[in-house]
Amino acid sequence: MFKAKINVQFKEGVLDPQGAAIKGALNHLGFEAEDVRVGKMIEVKLKAASLEDARTKVRTMCEKLLANPVLEDYSFEVAEESL
């Protein structure tokens, strides 16, 4: 069994209104945040023949469904999980 941690974020240059709101709140609390970007963290447990196979599957998931290439980038980590 493999576990993938996938991070989906707005591309550089796309306005992120949630990030802007959080930045405002942080600054209001005195944290002086320079920039805040909000993303989604998606955890997927999957079966695959090998680590490489798992990575390929996760990449396809991202491209097909999990991220919208028009405005989002994705990154991920895959690790083997012992049952």
Partner: peptide, 16 residues
């Protein structure tokens, strides 16, 4: 948009 029949994408409203 998601199906690619029209160009672009939709985001949350500016004021959330």
């Amino acid at each position: 948009l998601e199906a690619g029949l029209l160009p672009g994408a939709m985001m949350k409203n500016r004021d959330l």
